[in-house]
Design a binder for these strands. Structure first.
Length: 269
DNA sequence: TGCCAGGCTTCAC
DNA sequence: GTGAAGCATGGC
């Protein structure tokens, strides 16, 4: 267990920022995160100290990059113009958000699931998929399961997958799993592509449109220039920016700005 | 009970 | 190329 004083890091805000669905509050100020075959308990005390339930070695190797702790988010916040009142409030409310470095495969499937679902429903579906087709991790009670592999999902049928509350998305997920399991889509190799080529590749996967592809770019491949536009962002642009917002003004970091906007829009409701 | 959800695909036109 | 309809299901 290690204790650190971190700036611009808040587990509560990250867990509620809509980028991850297996980062749950367990008790007051305590959160549990499942990533790959790893489970992390993290807590932030009122004095700002962050307590990570892992060794220093594991933290440095795994969680430090996962939480993107080497990136200066204060610099992103500082570049928001004070004339933008909405965004100024948003970065103040969500100053502890970071863009996690999550698994591309898990992000692909998770954001295919996300279409026309609310966040509690997405979490339920992801959890069901993991319980049914993932691998048990550690020795927890109740047991914890990893997110299922492409091979594990490709071995099912769309009808069986549908039993996880996926609805019409089950066909997309089955086809995506087959493409990845067969090697037709190689997500590891795709990480070497530039943003445009990666975006185009993702669009070839059934159930992946412009919005989902941008989410996979941002949350699965850490392309923080990607700017996913969903119903929340479009609503913000309509209501706060008169229908016109140019993410290009935040070139190379628009995805971070998008997260502040998304979090704040949900936070204040 | 009815509405809506971090959209995508298909099909007219 | 553009716009509208249809889609399955769960949460509130």
């Amino acid at each position: 267990m290690i204790t650190l004083q971190l700036t611009n890091f808040c587990p509560a805000q990250i867990a509620d920022s809509g980028q991850c669905f297996r980062f749950q509050k367990t008790e007051d100020c305590a959160y549990r995160l499942i990533a790959g075959k790893h489970v992390l308990q993290v807590r932030k005390k009122e004095n700002g100290e962050c307590i990570f339930d892992c060794s220093r070695t594991e933290f440095d190797r795994l969680w430090k990059p996962y939480f993107d702790l080497d990136t200066d988010y204060a610099a992103f916040i500082a570049k928001v113009p004070s004339s933008d009142l909405f965004l100024s409030s948003a970065v103040k409310a969500g100053s502890g958000i970071r863009i996690l470095r999550q698994d591309p495969w898990e992000m692909l499937i998770t954001f295919i699931i996300s279409q026309r679902k609310n966040i509690p429903a997405i979490k339920s579906a992801v959890e069901l998929l993991s319980q049914k087709f993932g691998e048990p991790i550690g020795d927890f009670s109740p047991p914890v399961f990893s997110f299922p592999s492409a091979k594990a999902l490709a071995a099912q049928s769309p009808e069986i997958l549908r039993g996880c509350g996926l609805g019409y998305r089950a066909d997309y997920i089955y086809k995506a799993a087959c493409m990845v399991a067969s090697g037709q889509i190689n997500l590891a190799a795709a990480a070497a592509l530039d943003d445009d080529a990666l975006f185009a590749l993702l669009l070839t996967i059934p159930g992946v449109g412009v919005k989902v592809a941008n989410c996979v770019l941002l949350f699965g491949f850490h392309r923080i220039g990607a700017f996913p536009r969903d119903v929340w962002i479009n609503r913000i642009i309509d209501e706060e920016y008169g229908g016109s917002f140019a993410p290009e003004q935040y070139s190379g970091r628009a995805g971070v700005i998008q997260q502040y906007m998304f979090y704040y829009a949900r936070y204040r409701t």
